[in-house]
Amino acid sequence: MDTILYPIMWVIAWIMYGIHEGLVALGMDSGAGPAWVFAILGLTVVVRLCILPLYNKQIKASRNMQALQPEMMKIQRKYKGKRDQISMQRQQEELQALYKKHDASPFASCLPLIIQMPVLFALYRVLIAFPSLATGSWSRDTLGPITKQIAQHFENSTVFGAPLSASFTSAPHLPGYSATTIRVVAGVLVLIMIFTMYWTQRQLMKKNMPEIDPSEGKNPAQQMQKVMLYGFPLLYLFSGVAFPIGVLVYWCAGNLWNMGQQSWFIRNNPTPGSKAYKEREARLAAKRKRAGLTEEEAQELDEREAQGGQRYQPMGKERAKKAGIEQPAAEPANDEPVRGKDGLTDEERARKRYERRQAERARRKQNKNKKNRKHN
């Protein structure tokens, strides 16, 4: 196992060592101490930032899959009870065509988890290797920058009295440390993992799932979320006791990061038709109302944005007056376009703004290409 994971273990060791040395440069102790705990937290941040593009793809794919649930259920009802090979093949073809049309994939949401699993296993093997490195009995003399002396420093670093390489099950076999303390710290970290995972899945299920009429049948996405809601915490409960304290620290920090990151996405980029989406629409409507837009102007803005056109924001009477634009209450009887003091209609004004922005984007792109050519 170590032979396969060694390249990832080597990278993890260097990242932890680099973060540790940075903390030492800021004034923390260079030997055993909290700097190694913060090194694990720093490793969490580095890994999460590296997979952030994948996480964005996961969120997009998840939103697309959730938005497709009504259409998927229609296809499933269409072939309900048909178990012959031709019907099942046609059902899969229609589902695949639906995924392709809306750029969705049922497996894309698993990418960040799949990417993280080798990192998690490698971190586990790194922490397991520290005791052997500290005694000089490991298969190699060093692990990247981790020498025998550094491994000993890590071994003596603790979280509330529990060594980073200790686990709930190994607590009685570590002389010099309290088995009760180790088990309490490990148990608390496992409980934090369970709570954060449960809360994250519950928020996703309760606030970011599109509402579907119960008469249309069970929503497969909601059923899957329910399995994950209770399945993953249960998995943590049984597997967490076997992981070292250092891995539990990494896992808890990652879950807390996920919880905050997902809360931000649910609030600002919710799935259409979900509870969070309706709450966001209500916030935007209140914001437009405070900006002085009438109900008709806000509706016009919504229609323009829904059509994917130029995002032209209508002006309220007070803003129009300050901008020197006249907005009569009604259109003239002869259907003449309404023009402001600048002699332009709303459409012409929006078009000029659009052309100006396009020109600015073109200039920025041209300047960026020039800079790239200079560097090359």
Rank of each mutant, 00 (worst) to 15 (best):
P220C: 05
R267S: 10
E303R: 12
T169I: 09
I182F: 10
G292W: 04
A291S: 09
G260H: 04
G273T: 11
K206L: 15
L234W: 15
V190S: 09
E297A: 02
V227T: 14
F265N: 01
V185D: 00
P172E: 05
P175T: 10
M205N: 15
V249Q: 13
L235T: 11
L237I: 11
S263Q: 11
T196H: 02
W264S: 03
R202H: 14
A286V: 00
N255D: 04
A291Y: 02
N258F: 11
Y198T: 08
P172R: 13
D302Y: 06
W199Q: 07
Q203K: 11
S239T: 11
R267H: 15
A285L: 02
A179D: 08
T271W: 09
A179I: 06
F265D: 04
L284G: 00
L174W: 03
K207R: 11
V249A: 11
E303G: 05
L191V: 07
V249I: 12
N208C: 03
L248W: 00
A221V: 12
I245Y: 03
K206D: 15
T294P: 06
L301K: 07
L204C: 13
D302Q: 14
V188A: 15
P210V: 08
E305R: 09
N255Q: 09
D213W: 15
N255L: 08
G176L: 03
A186G: 12
S263V: 08
W257D: 00
A282Q: 03
F195A: 03
T200C: 06
Y250W: 10
V241C: 13
Q261M: 10
V185L: 04
N269R: 07
R288K: 11
G176H: 01
E303A: 13
R304P: 07
A242P: 06
P210Y: 06
Q299W: 03
Y177M: 06
A286Q: 04
R183L: 02
Q262E: 04
E305A: 07
W199P: 04
L237H: 15
G260C: 02
L174M: 07
G240V: 02
W199M: 05
L229M: 14
L189R: 01
N268D: 11
E296F: 07
Y177N: 01
E211V: 14
T180A: 12
G217N: 11
G260I: 05
V247R: 00
Q222P: 15
G231W: 13
I194W: 06
K275A: 14
N255M: 08
F168V: 10
F232Y: 09
R304T: 06
G254R: 03
G231Q: 15
A242K: 13
E211L: 14
E303K: 12
